[in-house]
């Protein structure tokens, strides 16, 4: 695999119990314990961790109960692999992650095209346990493994006129079934203001639960911006561009009145068609109140001082 950060002295989980057997057994148990009963046994699902990547604990992690690995990896929005929630995990093999290269370009003094290994080599990995709030009204708590995006951007040396960062997902309609239909404009694009991208909460993730990212979660490299709706956290990145103008973003292009450039989690600004006041945390029965900036207001509210967030939604 591309990311060799496995500590040799430790056995991989796959050496202990064949992965299929162990997952099949878990599926069986989940089936039998569906709904409420499953909630009583979060420990089972979390047994899988810490064998793939080596990393240290990072700042900003929440101590809320983590959403089980199975849920994080089988309930996904990744339209390149299908629009149903279980399509991405079912079609995960269709995403080819080897070889993978990342282009850094645009308004910067030090652009480059990197093989993934070279792109990742300089950065120490950290675990960041973040809340993820989807614009559809559900949320998870996910232990990502990654590094702060600001390191990459600093290395690229943005020019004085760079104000935004644009991101692009792989374009491979031959292999990615979703890209053969015009559901969104392909390749998927996303963007951040430079100060948002430089914020220490913003990370590039290469793993979750201590293992390499599964394809359906955006392997091999994805953005995680925890105070924004999930679709801002673009998956399977092939290009990071410094930009002077606000870059086009996929959902904004599809429905400009529904998905703004900022798309900060905000319970007071409804999606035009549904409320954003509450969310269902996956694994919980009752909906919970959605928090401003997904609960990261102390860290990020300053970025938007003086802005009308109802207008810049």
């Amino acid at each position: 695999m591309l990311i060799h950060r496995h500590v040799r002295s430790e056995p991989r989980s796959s050496e202990i119990t064949p992965r299929e057997v162990y997952l099949a057994r878990r599926d069986f148990m989940r089936g039998g314990l569906a709904l409420g009963a499953g909630l009583l046994l979060p420990g089972l699902a979390q047994a899988r961790s810490g064998n793939g990547l080596s990393f240290s604990p990072g700042p900003f992690s929440t101590d809320e109960p983590k959403t089980p690995w199975e849920d994080v990896t089988t309930y996904n929005n990744f339209y390149e692999l299908g629009t149903g929630k279980s399509d991405p995990s079912r079609n995960a093999d269709m995403l080819r992650t080897e070889p993978w290269s990342v282009v850094v370009d645009g308004a910067c003094a030090n652009p480059g095209r990197y093989a993934l290994e070279d792109f990742l080599k300089p950065w120490a990995l950290e675990e960041r346990i973040y809340r993820l709030r989807c614009v559809e009204g559900w949320s998870m708590v996910i232990p990502w493994v990654g590094f702060e995006l600001n390191q990459v951007l600093q290395q690229a040396e943005p020019t004085g006129s760079a104000r935004y960062v644009a991101f692009e997902t792989i374009l491979d309609p031959e292999n990615l079934p979703g890209q053969r239909r015009p559901v969104l404009q392909w390749p998927y694009t996303e963007g951040l203001r430079l100060d948002e991208a430089m914020h220490p909460l913003t990370i590039l993730a290469v793993g979750l639960y201590g293992e390499e990212l599964p394809n359906q979660n955006g392997a091999p490299l994805r953005l995680v911006v925890p105070w924004k709706y999930g679709f801002k956290s673009i998956k399977s990145i092939v290009r990071i561009s410094l930009a002077e103008e606000e870059p086009p973003t996929a959902w904004n292009q599809a429905q400009p009145n529904e998905y703004g450039f900022y798309s900060n989690v905000n319970p007071d600004v409804a999606h035009p068609r549904w409320s954003q006041r509450t969310e269902r945390r996956i694994g919980e029965f009752r909906r919970r109140r959605t928090e401003m900036f997904n609960g990261y207001g102390d860290e990020v509210a300053d970025l938007y001082a003086g802005m009308d967030l109802k207008k810049h939604f």
Binding site: D27, G31, G32, A34, L35, T74, Y75, K85, I282
Partner: peptide, 14 residues
């Protein structure tokens, strides 16, 4: 709902 046939998935209420 009672757990047969693989249950209701990750987001049962949905």
């Amino acid at each position: 709902t009672a757990g047969a046939f693989g249950g209701l998935g990750v987001n049962p209420i949905e």
